[in-house]
Design a protein around this nucleic acid. Sequence first.
DNA 1: AACACGGGGCG
DNA 2: CGCCCAGTGTT
Length: 346
Amino acid sequence: MSFQKKEFQQLIQWYQAHHQNYPWRLTKDPYAVWISEIMLQQTRIETVLPKYERFMKELPSIHDLATVSEDHLMHFWEGLGYYSRARNLQKAALQIEDRHHGIFPHQLEEIQALTGIGDYTAGAIASFSFGVGVPAIDGNVLRVYSRHEGLYQNVLDPSVKSLVKQQMLPLYTKEKHSDNGDFNQAIMELGEQICLPKNPDCQNCPIQKGCFSFLHHKQGELPIRISKTKKKKEEHSFLIFYTKEAILVHKRPVNGLLANLYEPVNLDFFIDIEDFLQQHQIPVLSYQTLSSHKHIFSHRIWQIQAYAIEVKELFPFPEYQWIEKKKSQHLAFSSAFDPYRSYFYQ
DNA sequence: AACACGGGGCG
DNA sequence: CGCCCAGTGTT
């Protein structure tokens, strides 16, 4: 399956007949396109609409943006979130005045060199405003493209996004042409109106005939999005209490993380060791703060601060038991405790 | 490569 | 209420 020039034209025709007339689509003015594209990053159209109208009324030109006070700028951005976007806008407006005599640059490389404009936004402005033949790949495009092509690769992987960009490039006309911009608008609009994340409206899709997912009923399988399981960080304190002969351990519950494994005192927060020893009236002989470690699970990270505490006698500690050091060598511990095993039976 | 940035929608 | 969304800059 591959995207053809025919589909390029079909999508443009569909777009011209069906697209929404958002205010930023009534002009090719790069300033207007720029402001709208920055606002639309991670922000819904309905949220952007009123904010865009006010922003353009208050700051209708690059020079107005370059010279507005920080307070006013932030006020005009209120409610949009990601406030560094507004600060980057002003920074870029000043760059346009410095580098380009206040005229929005026409070249892709110059556009992307402006602060706050990355790969997607540069492609959007260059194609919408100047007809440059370059993709503008956002989440919509990746969904439409991967479904149409049957691309069974993780679209969240930057290298896959780069691959899609390379594969799309030949579709565009080399010369500047409004079709290039219209196609980019069209593929995104298709993602918003037809090729929805759930229940795509394939019956009304202008490019269903060449679509892998439509033909093979695989709309539910694509796009593939394997998010880097963002591991939750947890603070843990290991307290290795020991005498010459014994250490204090307990057996973890039969269910859950590291079920049935043994461990020294393991608290799910960081402690102040001095306070802890005093408050629990531990019969301390001496103690040592050990080097901290990270233990990485599939779904979480323990940030571990460990202490080795030699005590005078076998004091009671709820849920924990004293065992002979030589016996501890035959118990199963998680590898989270490996860096500290030597203290178990030294 | 991992993380921060913010508001809103969704289950 | 916690989870998810998804470009860009920073480290």
